[in-house]
Design a protein around this nucleic acid. Structure first.
Lengths: 114, 114
DNA sequence: TTCTCGATTAACCATAAGGTTAAATTAGCA
DNA sequence: TGCTAATTTAACCTTATGGTTAATCGAGAA
């Protein structure tokens, strides 16, 4: 999980993923829009590979990369667990209840039923 | 966006967020379950703050931290853009199992040709 | 055999992460 | 006038990131 979010924490790599969503790409093709060296691109690809987000298929000289999206499901779920906190209604109600509650004990008042 | 995924890329910080989802916590309370120093916890909190995921309220000695989930929406959307690539894989598997075709293709590619 | 060329490895650099300990900050309290 | 206690800041260490250039690899082509 660390590796997945780590992989996503760089704009270059997020762009590479978007690129790969369009279809297979070689290292050079991934490097080109960023104006970076093959070495730099290769490192990014390696990090995406480590996170399980990229599959590499070596065809002669070229290393052809494919998106491997499955691991994103876990990351998606992790963030999705907080969805109710940003989707407004519940959040606002919760805020209201918290403001009204003068007995600010450190109790789990933020979560369970809301 | 970088900062958000960066903040999420550490298990300690993800746990802190889960903790904050239960209610407000001081730096010390956030540090305690991880057996780490206040200094270390303070650094993590600072990163969460930089990512906009945490709001700090100084009450006398204690820095009381609150979850600020709104920025997660963008990260959620970013990952969600790939949803079809992993649900598609499941669809494909489902179809494979239902068809019970003689061609035992064990290479579930993320369906496009591009 | 030798050339080509996409990619990797090696070496290096600067900066950031994640942790530590020691010292400074700070506002109420005795 | 201090004392207390939760945090922060400062200084330091080790490892990881993100980039570079130079050298190496490997298999098809000439």
């Amino acid at each position: 999980m660390d590796d997945i979010f780590q992989a996503l924490s760089d704009a270059t790599r997020r762009q590479m993923l978007r690129d790969l969503a369009q279809g297979e790409r070689t290292i050079g093709q991934l490097a080109q829009p960023h104006g970076m060296s093959l070495v730099a691109a290769s490192k990014h690809v390696k990090m995406l590979e480590r996170a399980g987000l990229l599959r590499r298929e070596i065809r002669w000289r070229s290393h052809v990369c494919h998106l491997q999206a499955a691991p994103l499901a876990a990351a998606y779920a992790e963030i999705g667990a907080y969805e109710r906190f940003w989707t407004g209604a519940l959040d606002r109600l919760d805020q209201l209840l918290r403001d009204e509650d003068s007995t600010s004990e450190t109790s789990p008042k933020h979560g369970d039923t809301a």
